[in-house]
Amino acid sequence: MTAKSSTNSTRLLTVGEVAKRSGVAVSALHFYESKGLIAGTRTAGNQRRYPALVLRTIAIIKVAQRTGIPLEVIKRALGRYPPNSKLTAAQWGEMSSAWREDLNARIRTLEALRDSLDNCIGCGCLSLEDCPLRNPEDVLGKDGAGARILEKEATAKHV
Results as ranks from 00 to 15, higher is better:
F31L: 10
R108E: 14
K86P: 15
Q65F: 09
K20C: 05
S5W: 07
R66P: 06
A147R: 05
L13Y: 00
I121E: 14
I74C: 02
R49Y: 04
D115K: 02
L78Y: 10
Y50C: 00
D118T: 13
R100K: 15
K86Q: 15
L113D: 01
G36H: 06
S85T: 13
K35V: 07
Q91I: 02
E17D: 06
T41A: 12
A25T: 09
E129F: 11
V24S: 06
R80W: 13
E111C: 09
I149W: 06
V24D: 01
G68T: 13
C131T: 03
E129G: 14
E94I: 07
K157C: 13
T43M: 06
S9A: 14
L87I: 05
R106N: 15
D138Q: 07
V73G: 07
I58E: 05
I60L: 06
H30E: 04
L150T: 14
Y50I: 00
G93E: 06
A156N: 10
T14G: 02
N119F: 10
G68R: 11
W99P: 01
S34P: 04
R21N: 14
A64G: 03
C125M: 13
I107T: 07
R148Y: 11
A145H: 12
G146W: 10
A25Y: 07
T14F: 00
S5I: 02
L140F: 15
G23M: 09
E153N: 08
Y32Q: 00
S34G: 10
R134W: 13
I121A: 11
A77D: 15
G124T: 02
P51E: 03
S22T: 06
P51N: 05
K75E: 03
A154K: 12
S97P: 04
N46W: 01
Y50K: 01
R100S: 11
I61H: 02
K75A: 12
S22N: 11
L150Q: 14
L12S: 03
A112C: 08
K152F: 15
N8T: 08
T67G: 04
R66Y: 12
S97H: 13
I58P: 09
K35Y: 08
T14I: 02
L53R: 01
A39C: 05
V63W: 11
W92R: 12
D138R: 06
F31M: 08
S27D: 12
K86S: 15
I58A: 00
D138E: 13
I74N: 02
G68V: 11
V54G: 04
E72D: 14
R42T: 06
V15K: 08
G124R: 01
R11Y: 02
A28F: 07
V15Q: 05
G23D: 08
M1I: 08
V63C: 10
A145R: 11
N46I: 00
I149H: 01
V26C: 09
L117S: 09
N119A: 14
T2F: 08
A28I: 02
Y32E: 06
A105K: 13
I38T: 12
D102P: 12
D102K: 04
L37S: 01
G45Q: 11
A105N: 14
A19M: 08
V54C: 09
A90E: 10
I149R: 03
N104A: 15
